[in-house]
Computed example of a mutant assay.
Amino acid sequence: MRALISRYPDFYAGSAEFVDLQTALEPEVLELWRARDGLLDQLAVETATWGLQYWEKTLGLSVEQSKEIAYRRSRIRSKLRGAGVTTVALIESVAESFSNGEVELTEFPLQFRLEIKFVGSVGMPPNMEDLTAALREIMPAHLRWEYVIVYNTWGVTAQHTWAELRNRTWDQVKGVAWT
């Protein structure tokens, strides 16, 4: 109750009718403020939840309500970054938005080819299918690209004990970033 009444001059607190009115209005006003804040959250990709469908529709993406919010946000960010002229920086930016890590791009101009190396993470990055779709959309048709994925080697795993590794498959071991 004190939230609304504290916004008025102190002499209003002496009026029983005014206090009763503010007590009755406060839950409604607080709910309106929460709704307003929730609506404002939908205007930014990083905070949007139920409004992601509007971002997706606006950008021409399929609305996939069953997918995780982080996945949907990465698709939207990638689409927003993909507008304009295709540059090395743009391709890196799009790839980084899908891999959630640093990417190195190597150009081979005489071969009309690019290598996209995921150096910020170990193992297969998430959303590779969507990354490929996004790159197909922004890349010139005459360029081809290849992904270079960093995995652990026996040399890296040899530094760890059997207790750390025994409950893992090789696929799990080679894709884990060891610190």
Rank of each mutant, 00 (worst) to 15 (best):
A70N: 15
R72N: 02
Q53A: 10
V88T: 11
S66A: 15
S66H: 15
E56I: 02
A70V: 13
T86E: 09
I69N: 04
L59T: 06
Y54H: 10
E64T: 14
R73M: 01
G82P: 04
G60A: 12
G51A: 02
G84V: 07
L61R: 05
Y54M: 11
L59G: 08
I69Q: 10
G84F: 02
E68V: 04
A83G: 07
Y71G: 02
G84Q: 10
W55E: 13
Y54P: 00
E64Y: 00
G51Y: 01
G82K: 06
G60E: 02
K67W: 07
V85G: 13
W50V: 14
R77M: 08
R73S: 00
R81H: 11
E56A: 03
A83R: 06
K57L: 06
T87D: 06
K79W: 11
S66L: 10
S66P: 00
A83E: 13
S74I: 00
A70Y: 05
Y54A: 09
L52Q: 10
G60L: 03
L52W: 08
S78G: 15
L80F: 03
K67N: 04
L59Q: 06
A83M: 06
Q53E: 14
L61A: 12
L59C: 04
T49S: 14
G82E: 12
L52F: 06
G84W: 01
T86I: 05
R81W: 12
L90T: 12
R72P: 03
T58I: 03
Q65E: 15
A89K: 09
I76S: 09
S62W: 01
K67I: 00
G60R: 01
E68S: 15
R81E: 10
E68W: 03
K57T: 15
W50G: 09
V88M: 06
L90I: 11
G84N: 05
R75C: 07
I69D: 03
V63P: 05
I76G: 12
L61E: 11
L90K: 15
R75M: 11
K57G: 03
L90M: 15
R72Y: 02
T87A: 07
R75W: 01
A83L: 13
K57A: 15
R75S: 00
R77F: 12
R77A: 03
T58R: 09
E68Q: 15
L80R: 08
